[in-house]
């Protein structure tokens, strides 16, 4: 479904993503790991259209989307969340989903919205709360809910579990496990915690300094000496 080929993204002299190739199938849950600053978020930005690649190709559903504007990619089925939640502040939770559905999926379906609210544990907040009044767990849930409302084929999750306390994390994890089946989406998820990735993903891709250094089953990849070095060599083993 998604195929990224030799993709590079530069910021001035810095090559944040360096000739990365990877793919995500419709029925896959793929982990994307790597130290802070490895270029994971930048890769998401390039695929969703927020960052302009300097070279390479992005093929989605057999279409080259490299030059397609953001909103077109969203309508084609590329959904994403933001590492730092970006709710539509002035709107209620339900309105957030309505906008996503109306413009991303093309038509409004209240029943689907209710279903998404229920699934993301946001149902009690739906109509009353303005998005800006939510707590962190809810903001993260809203990120997922918004993306789901666009009816995506590919869902890119950027550190949705980071910063949550244990109970929130557990609930979120349960949700993530169901997500793939229930909404029939392929998932690419950025997450630092090895256990979480092993638990959720069939496959994991590792970035380090913008380069892809491993791609395979989690139990193999996390035994790869180069991967271990990238994890422990940097200062953040087991941290965010």
């Amino acid at each position: 479904m998604l195929r990224v080929e030799e993709l590079s993204v530069c910021f001035g002299g810095l090559t944040a993503v360096n000739k990365v190739s990877l793919s995500v199938g419709t029925d896959e849950v793929v982990g994307l790991v790597g130290p802070n600053g490895a270029g994971k978020t930048t890769l998401f930005n390039a695929v969703s259209g927020l960052a302009r690649p300097s070279s390479g190709r992005i093929i989605f559903d057999s279409v080259d989307v490299l030059r397609a504007p953001l909103h077109r990619r969203a309508k084609m089925g590329i959904g994403r969340t933001f590492q730092i939640p970006q709710p539509l502040h002035e709107l209620t939770v339900r309105e957030n989903l309505l906008v996503a559905q109306r413009f991303g999926a093309g038509q409004v379906d209240q029943q689907k919205i209710d279903e998404i609210l229920e699934f993301t544990n946001l149902a009690p907040k739906g109509d009353r709360e303005a998005a800006k009044e939510l707590a962190l767990t809810e903001l993260k849930a809203l990120e997922v809910a918004k993306a789901l409302a666009t009816n995506p084929k590919l869902l890119m999750l950027d550190e949705v579990l980071a910063g949550l306390e244990t109970s929130g994390k557990r609930r979120f994890m349960a949700m993530l496990k169901e997500l793939h089946q229930k909404f029939a989406v392929g998932i690419l998820i950025i997450e630092h915690d090895i256990e979480t990735i092993s638990n959720l993903c069939q496959r994991v891709v590792v970035l380090n300094f913008g380069k892809l250094i491993a791609d395979g089953a989690p139990d193999q990849v996390f035994r790869d000496p180069e991967v271990i070095k990238s994890y422990t060599g940097a200062d953040h083993a087991g941290s965010r």
């Binding site: 969703s48 259209g49 970006q86 709710p87 539509l88 002035e90 309105e95 996503a100």
Partner: peptide
């Protein structure tokens, strides 16, 4: 509603179509 949303979160509004 979409325009109101765009106000302080333009990127977030664009990535939902």
């Amino acid at each position: 509603i979409a325009l109101r949303a765009m106000h302080d979160s333009e990127d977030a509004t664009r990535v939902i179509g």
